[in-house]
């Protein structure tokens, strides 16, 4: 098994993928990216980056699948329950009077975070006027998100987080279990649009009431974080919100000047 890769190999991979397939990992945090690549080599039983690139080139390996393996897709319903409590008590009351609520989940993975937000808005009785744009770099996770069916193995964690969030209603109000899966009601999901969007290179000009960008900035180096947070700030309505992951910070980013910190702990920012 490959245990280490010279940095030059990692950089070479990023360069080739950028040239040939339009994904830009050049400014991803190096140690994490390297770990992922070593993992991929062992997963596909390949001895080197050169061989990996060759397999992709010959279409023996699907680049989308490789991208899925590079990016970390782990997610949870109601991850960080206190953050959702904060959103419920501090943000939603400022949104309920709007004729329309626009929400962007910028790295939604398999959709758990989007469904979580939909449940919050359903609790507040404003789901009908909420519109979600849920995006991710990776087609495969989006396909899964669109199905909105989840394996029962995720149930206990959902219940643990949901309970910690102290919900208004039992979870069965929103979903049903069936054999080894659970499904969310279509009425909860009707205003969600899932679409591919690469935070590194795609451009967007719409503005949102809440932008979620959780647990993806950690995979970027500082320079890329800077660039991406600029982009997010440009897509946020004045006095509207940015929510990032619990271990992330925008303090090193120039766009941090454009925000007030609403909660250091919950990582919620408000555009000035």
């Amino acid at each position: 098994m490959v245990e280490d890769l010279p940095d030059s190999e990692v950089k070479y991979f990023a360069y080739q993928v950028k040239q040939n397939y339009g994904y830009d990992f050049e400014n991803y945090a190096m140690s994490s990216l390297k770990r992922r690549l070593i993992r991929i080599l062992s997963l596909y039983h390949l001895p080197s980056i050169e061989k990996l690139l060759e397999q992709i080139d010959k279409k023996k390996l699907d680049i989308e699948e490789v991208v899925r393996q590079i990016t970390v897709n782990t997610t949870e319903f109601f991850r960080d329950p206190t953050t959702w409590q904060f959103i419920r008590s501090q943000l939603i009351p400022n949104l309920v009077h709007k004729p329309q609520i626009d929400i962007w989940h910028t790295a939604c993975s398999t959709g758990e975070e989007v469904i979580t937000m939909a449940i919050l808005l359903a609790e507040a009785n404003v789901l009908d006027k909420a519109y979600f744009w849920a995006t991710d770099i990776n087609d495969k996770v989006l396909e899964q998100a669109k199905k909105s069916e989840y394996h029962i193995r995720n149930w206990d964690l959902l219940m643990e987080n949901y309970h910690a969030y102290q919900p208004l209603y039992p979870i069965e109000r929103y979903c049903v279990k069936h054999s080894d899966k659970f499904f969310f009601h279509k009425s909860l999901l009707k205003n969600i649009v899932y679409q591919k969007f690469d935070l590194v290179k795609d451009v967007h000009t719409e503005k949102y009431d809440i932008v979620f960008c959780r647990n993806v900035l950690i995979y970027f180096n500082q320079q890329l974080q800077n660039q991406v947070v600029d982009k997010l700030a440009n897509c946020t309505k004045p006095r509207s919100y940015l929510v990032i992951g619990s271990k992330e910070t925008i303090m090193w980013c120039r766009a941090s000047e454009r925000y007030n910190v609403l909660s250091h702990k919950e990582k919620v920012y408000q555009l000035k």
Binding site: A29, S31, S32, R35, R36, N215, I218, Y219, Q222, E248
Partner: peptide, 30 residues
């Protein structure tokens, strides 16, 4: 928790390693 080449820290929520997150292997190797 990982360390990176520019001597910064980087977090990841990748799968647990040996049932652990944080994993000692991940930190030590980086």
């Amino acid at each position: 928790l990982l360390v990176d080449y520019d001597h910064t820290f980087a977090y990841s929520i990748a799968e647990a390693v040996r049932y652990s997150r944080p994993s000692i292997d991940v930190l030590f190797t980086s």
